[in-house]
């Protein structure tokens, strides 16, 4: 099978980028899209050209490192599949695959298909946890959690933080990512004490990062490799509404977004 990969090449945020077309040959349908890029990169390296920078790590669809657009769809055409698990058998001989990075104001560009997703970490920092320190806990079975609640929490907790939801959203909203964490923790009794504060702070951080607002389009859940349900956003809105009223006297401060790569080194 012969394909053409049209890949966004851009050396750094300051330089001008463009699509470059590369013909590739695919020996076997079981090959993944990333393995196809590996083979292309081997060829480029042998020719002395710079390989295409793209992110990947576990290649099992769980670490959330990989991801870019293929023909305008985040993670490509297969539902519930990250790009590392997308096999070439889903493409036809002669097809052109247009590959470009996630594009969002809150994901600053780095190189080729690589962007900076630290804004997601800051959303978690702002309240995406249960405030419990090591050691200060009761027995695991002390608080019963019904199977249905545990399952619903797990449905939301399955988020891998890849950023596809943001890339797919016409508004560049991070509502599905943020809602998934609010739902994961808010459904469980362990997360209840901080439910109000968590929603208010995480939403404030999401806004401070420059993510857009949610207008219930649903592209996010459509491309989500873990099929996080849209109800996570409903849960976020619910918790936010209640929290904003109950916490109306609290001062909410967001963490200042950082885009540089200096960490106070000597």
């Amino acid at each position: 099978m012969k394909l053409t990969l049209s890949i966004w090449r851009q050396k750094n945020p300051g330089s001008k980028g463009k699509f470059v077309s590369y013909p590739v040959e695919v020996p076997n349908g079981e090959m993944s899209v990333l393995e196809c890029l590996d083979v292309l990169n081997e060829t480029l390296s042998e020719r002395g050209e710079e390989p295409v920078a793209f992110e990947h790590d576990c290649r099992e669809g769980i670490c959330g490192t990989c991801g870019f657009m293929i023909n305008g769809v985040a993670h490509g055409p297969m539902p519930a599949t990250t790009i590392c698990q997308l096999t070439m058998r889903h493409f036809k001989d002669g097809e052109e695959l247009v590959m470009e990075p996630w594009r969002s104001r809150a994901f600053p560009f780095v190189k080729d298909l690589v962007v900076d997703r630290r804004s997601f970490d800051r959303i978690i920092q702002s309240g995406g946890y249960v405030s419990v320190s090591t050691g200060n806990v009761p027995d695991g079975n002390a608080i019963p959690i019904g199977k249905d609640d545990a399952d619903r929490s797990m449905d939301a907790a399955a988020c891998i933080g890849c950023g596809a939801c943001v890339a797919a959203c016409p508004n560049g909203s991070a509502a599905l990512f943020t809602g998934a964490k609010i739902a994961h923790l808010g459904i469980l009794p362990q997360g209840k004490p901080e439910q109000d504060r968590r929603a208010v702070q995480m939403v404030a951080q999401m806004n401070a990062e420059g993510f857009g607002s949610c207008t219930n389009i649903g592209e996010c859940t459509g491309v989500c490799p873990k099929e996080i349900p849209l109800e996570a956003i409903a849960k976020m809105n619910h918790d936010y509404l209640l929290g904003a009223w109950k916490e109306r006297k609290s001062v909410v401060t967001a963490i200042a977004p950082v885009t540089g790569w200096e960490f106070g080194e000597k």
Binding site: V132, V137, G140, P144, I145, G146, A150, Q190, G191
Partner: peptide, 22 residues
């Protein structure tokens, strides 16, 4: 045994029986 307690307290959604136990 302490690890399980710690993780449950953090909100790790372990599999549960219908009665609510791990």
């Amino acid at each position: 045994v302490h690890i399980i307690d710690q993780c449950v307290a953090q909100g790790v959604p372990f599999a549960r029986e219908y009665g609510g136990s791990l």
